[in-house]
Simulated scan of single mutants.
Amino acid sequence: MDCLFSQSRQFAGKRLHLGICGSVACYRLTDVLRALRRMDVHVSVTLTAGARRFVTPLLFEALGAMPVYGEMFAPGEDPFAHLEPGQHAQAMLVAPASADALSRLARGAASDMLSAQALAFDGPLLLAPAMNPRMWRHPATQANVALLRERGARLILPDCGRAACGDEGQGRLAPVEQLFWHALRALSPQDMAGRRVLVTLGPTREPWDGVRYWSNPSSGRMGGALALAAWLRG
């Protein structure tokens, strides 16, 4: 998913903080982490108590995340770790964002490491919810989402399909590729915001006569990269 910009140094040295909540989908964030690290993005991670039931801090440390936070005020933990992302990271992505996490963030709670870090973060905040479809549809969840949007949070809406519990509907974590590209967009300058760009791409066909034409083997990948770059910049 990072192949279009595999040679780019545009994001080298950028810093993103990744908050991971308890969900069966949390293992998919390892792919996002690996893709960001290949772009030389510095990634720090916070695992909620629920997330640590599914994955371990060592997994993310082994893939290049540094530091990886857990409980607030844990022995040996920096007493100001809840402020660190707001001081150093340019963007914050919470994925999977559970219903509980959305509720905490909407209320401005600061009772665990992740919610405190989000409350002290004033950069772009991206939220990628993942939960049972009925939980996602519940008016309380939708009210929390609307409030967070009103405050400037960027939502990466959940996908539709079969959830881990077997229920069908909207609630699955968005595709890994979407999380990756939205993360890069949050780290990009928005110097093209408000502009509309039209890109034509792919091979052309110029008629030669009634049955033949001139063409070329263009794949359209360059045009796709230009369109994506324009989107990343707003």
Rank of each mutant, 00 (worst) to 15 (best):
S111L: 14
L4Q: 06
A12H: 12
E150H: 14
G50N: 08
L155S: 04
V55H: 00
L155C: 07
P207I: 07
L226M: 12
L226F: 08
F54I: 04
A128H: 02
V68F: 00
R196D: 07
L173T: 00
E77Q: 15
L16T: 01
H82N: 12
L33S: 03
A130V: 00
E84L: 15
G64I: 06
G161D: 09
F60L: 15
V45C: 08
A97K: 00
C3L: 15
G202M: 07
R185Y: 05
V41M: 02
S218P: 07
Q142I: 05
R149V: 06
V45K: 04
W136E: 02
R154I: 11
Q178S: 09
R9L: 05
R212I: 07
A140Q: 08
L184I: 02
G123E: 06
E177T: 13
S111E: 15
R196V: 15
F5M: 06
R107Y: 11
T48Y: 02
L232Y: 01
R172Q: 02
G108W: 06
A130L: 00
G86I: 02
L157P: 15
G169C: 10
G234K: 11
P96Y: 04
L127G: 01
V94T: 12
S219K: 05
L58T: 13
P57D: 03
L173P: 04
L93T: 07
Q87F: 14
R52V: 03
R38C: 08
V24D: 01
S103L: 02
D40F: 13
G234Y: 07
C165V: 05
L47Q: 03
D78R: 15
R185W: 05
R134L: 13
A81S: 15
A74Q: 10
D78V: 13
G50I: 06
F121L: 09
A109H: 14
S115V: 01
L226D: 02
L157G: 11
G224A: 09
N144Y: 05
L147P: 04
M192T: 15
A120G: 14
W208T: 06
D2N: 11
C160V: 14
P79W: 11
